[in-house]
Amino acid sequence: MIQLDDVSYAYPDTDHFVLSHMNLSIPAGSVTGIVGASGAGKTTLAKILSGFIPHVDGGELSGTVVVDGVTIAEASLADAVSHVGLVIQSPFNQISGAKFTVREELAFGLENLGVPRDEMAVRVAEVADLLGITGLLDRSPYALSGGQQQLVAIASMIIMRTPVLVMDEPTSQLDPGGTRMVFDVMSSLRDSGITLVIFEHKLELLREHADVVHVLADHQLIAHGPSRAMLADPRMEEWGIGSTRFTAAASEARTKKLLPADVELPVSIEDAATVFASFASSKGA
């Protein structure tokens, strides 16, 4: 579904490669998490996956990027964006500014594509329901809080129904409840066949929702694996990504020989509950 072969990139007027000799293969209908310390080039990779590099940002891109069967460099931007959607970090800038209600804002992309009115109304209602923003439909997008704007921004891309959706820290403005809901929505999109790539810091949620996690460090994708194994990898510390408290607690317990040496380290609460319930019970219980 997404294939990167030997991709390198330097921004215009620089000879400093943000990403170098990168390979990546993402199967259709999966949720892929990409983690990396800040400054590792996550936003740049998100733009490459969605065609904005090289079409908008310019710069020097080598290697091939194929998304949903389309070779991005050879396609037009309009063609590329019909295959892959991008949710950018700032919800304020994802909002068009041209629409006066959330309802019309959500329909903006569909209007551009010439989707018939009846179908638009159905899709707006569906996506609003999915993200719990039906109550906001008649409000001005600018009268919303940052968190509400972020939900509108995500909805405005989901409604496009692109086969691939790339999200760059889509939950930065949301409180824990909103964040959890967005991740649940991602899982349901995956179940309907959409391929998702998400750039995130929230490791517990990545473990729960991503099938595979890739690590971006030193200008390259240096490791990948199933979400639990990858996120519990001891090297996550040296890569500056860190670990959840579940991983840290189990690792500490293992050092103190309170857990067996070969125990598979947990990342999420479910992993941890299983690990600790089978090997240890509390003296406080």
């Binding site: 964006v81 991008l86 950018i88 700032s90 594509l113």
Partner: peptide
């Protein structure tokens, strides 16, 4: 903002040549 917003608008097919409809 202008730079980011133009990227975001392209992602929402603003560059499409289809005959536009209105909600």
């Amino acid at each position: 903002d202008v730079e980011e917003r133009s990227t975001a608008m392209e992602a929402r097919a603003f560059g499409s040549t289809a005959r536009r409809t209105s909600l």
